[in-house]
């Protein structure tokens, strides 16, 4: 139950949607599934005066483009992403990641674009603030940080928890962004500011229209792991994505990417460790140590930094082993 009034529009095209957002300015918000937005509006941590719904727009099915990349409509429901044969066959990691999101109902309701643009989260921030933590924090336009009172740097340490974004970053996906002045294309990684206060680089009237995932090379391997407490329904404690390409010898790694989610203001990458993996025969244990030391996980939702780092170390090793085996064709 949302206890304030707002307006609602359901345009027939994304173009109209972006025009509506543009007219209303920062007070309007896109409603693309609503599984993140509705709970946030209910506790009034976001309070748009206009919702521009995309539910009147039918998403195109995922399709293969001429250049071999796969185009996914941003309005694709997560459950459709899980079930799409093209995705299962060509991008199994994406299907697997989408299958770990929240619950069946959320996957049925939520869209891919919505998942990528979900708000960052923090136990203190995601509250009803009528008598708990009344003083607004940085993210609520105020001048404190509830969990870290010593944080006087105007930064927000809420974490970005998408299960799918790290996969798309690892796969070098491109985003087609529609704005009032037409479309532009950005690399998936450039969607994020790395700032918990304003996590996204999108303009107020910009909408992700489509996601393009380029084809993967030969001897490509991937591994995905989402640590949760309950095995379902949960946001991730830590999410780990690893992709790599092996050389013809089946041993040497040509290049690798490691992307973490749920432990930073945006997705995190241990770039130095990644560099060390180029043209090298990998020792997963050593790489896991290096990668887990290189990033600085933010404590969140009751998990402290030391524990997260250890969890990341163990699962980086395991995920890397499975990525290598995948590239070797063993799994």
């Amino acid at each position: 139950m949302i206890l304030y009034d707002f307006e609602y529009e359901r345009p027939g095209s994304l173009k109209e949607a972006t025009a509506l957002l543009n007219e209303t300015g920062g007070d309007a918000q896109l409603l693309a599934g609503g599984t993140d937005l509705m709970p946030n509006m209910r506790v009034e941590v976001v309070t748009p005066s206009l919702l521009v719904s995309v539910s009147g727009i039918e998403p195109a099915a995922p399709e293969k483009c001429a250049d071999g990349s796969i185009r996914i409509d941003s309005l694709t429901k997560l459950s459709d992403l899980v079930d799409a044969e093209l995705i299962q066959n060509e991008l199994p990691m994406l299907a697997e990641a989408a299958h770990t999101v929240a619950s069946n109902q959320v996957r049925v309701m939520g869209t891919l674009g919505g998942n990528l643009c979900q708000e960052t989260r923090c136990l203190y921030y995601n509250q009803k603030h009528d008598y708990q933590f009344v003083e607004p924090c940085y993210k609520r336009g105020g001048d404190c940080c509830y969990p870290f009172p010593g944080n006087d740097r105007d930064v927000c340490w809420a974490v970005y928890m998408s299960d799918i974004a790290p996969v798309l970053i690892a796969l070098d996906a491109k985003l087609e962004i529609l704005g009032p002045d037409g479309t532009r294309e950005i690399a998936m990684a450039d969607l994020y500011t790395g700032d918990g206060m304003n996590p996204f680089t999108l303009g107020t009237a910009e909408i992700i229209q489509a996601i393009f995932v380029p084809p993967v090379p030969e001897r490509f391997g991937w591994g995905y792991h989402k640590t949760t407490v309950r095995g379902g329904l949960d946001f991730g404690t830590a999410i780990i994505v690893i992709v790599l390409q092996l050389a013809e010898d089946g041993e040497t790694c040509c290049w690798a990417k490691i992307v973490y989610s749920a432990v930073g203001q945006g997705p995190l990458r241990p770039t130095t460790t990644e560099l060390s993996m180029e043209d090298a025969v990998l020792d997963p244990a050593l790489i896991a140590v290096a990668a887990s030391q290189e990033i600085s996980p933010l404590p969140h939702h009751g998990f402290n930094k030391g524990f997260l780092r250890e969890n990341i170390r163990v699962y980086t090793e395991r995920t890397l082993v499975s990525a290598i085996e995948c590239a070797q064709g063993k799994i």
Partner: peptide, 15 residues
């Protein structure tokens, strides 16, 4: 036919 959380779905979305 799709299982939907009616507590976070706006009625207007179900026209």
């Amino acid at each position: 036919g799709q299982p939907t959380l009616s507590c976070i779905t706006l009625a207007v979305e179900c026209e």
